[in-house]
Nucleic acid binder design. Structure first.
Lengths: 161, 161
DNA sequence: TATCTGACTTTGCTAAACCTAAGCCAGCCT
DNA sequence: AGGCTGGCTTAGGTTTAGCAAAGTCAGATA
């Protein structure tokens, strides 16, 4: 194995999972809509007002999120009201929650106002505060400076061709 | 305490740590530049080519990242070469690594190509794969659907005024 | 002294993201 | 039947992000 990681210029940008993830959720309003969905918001107008975006943008982003499979749109009826559609997180969407928690945590630390954050996220079972942490398959807690970058299967395969 | 969380429309968007974090890192190229910095890239041209952005954009984003305190710009000299500047992650920037790991992990699962991801992230000490996980202060592993949203100090304070 | 290279900056343009304001439609309520 | 409400869509305009191509500048290297 030659120094694969040294000439990553060629491939990093074409087959990077971070870039791919950002193709789906790489803009502000999309992530904020997912924040709302994860907090339990379901109705169109609530999404728009709580995220602070206009209706046309909300409509476009929600449509895209449904197309990408992060939200599911389904009819429901409140008693005495007409049928309408609600948007709920799919499994694919719910798996972005760690990203949201990690972002919130960074914002709490580096960008909250003097009064502190407006929301705490707690474990439903025990009430204790929840954090995103790095952990290795060996069970160790990992700090950001303890990471190694290794070639993955996609890289090795591409190299063989 | 009345149902504070029901009328979150008013405050969520003005004092939300996720929104604040996204004010700093809420666009694609910024996050990709941080990816590169976390992988060890330091030189201007390498940032631009590896992220796949033009030089003017790289210059603008790097400048902003330095202004925001996520990167530090400092002179260095390779032996036999002239002095130049390199960009390195500050502590504030390094604390975004869990966000990047969580994004990568989501991309690996939902958006990688058939060959698999091109990079693996391993724990330097033991070589095992690293993941972003949710954990509560009580030490439990937490799933995305086991979260409760509670009012935080910023919300309570604002409410009291 | 002249050239080369890395690290930008400047110029001029396109495209994406977002806004406000207004319009539309379905179905429940009176 | 007529109006109200939720959930959008349409129209028109601004702001931000991005590109390509060319220019600048400082300090090695020849």
């Amino acid at each position: 194995m030659t120094d694969l990681l040294a000439n990553r210029d060629a491939w990093l940008m074409t087959n990077c999972s971070i870039a791919r993830a950002l193709d789906v959720v790489g803009n502000r309003s999309t992530l904020l809509l997912l924040r709302e969905a994860s907090l339990g918001t379901r109705r169109f107008d609530d999404f728009a007002t709580r995220v602070g975006i206009s209706e046309p943008v909300a409509a476009a982003r929600l449509k895209q999120l449904v197309a990408d499979g992060l939200l599911e749109r389904r009819p429901y009826r409140e008693p005495g009201k007409r049928t309408r559609d609600e948007y709920v997180l799919t499994d694919k969407g719910a798996q972005l929650v760690p990203v949201l928690v990690a972002l919130r945590q960074w914002g709490d630390t580096w960008a909250a106002d003097a009064a502190g954050p407006s929301v705490r996220i707690a474990h439903h079972d025990c009430g204790a505060e929840v954090h995103a942490v790095l952990r290795c398959a060996g069970g160790h807690d990992v700090e950001p400076d303890e990471l190694d970058v290794l070639p993955g299967p996609g890289l090795l395969r591409a190299d063989a061709e």
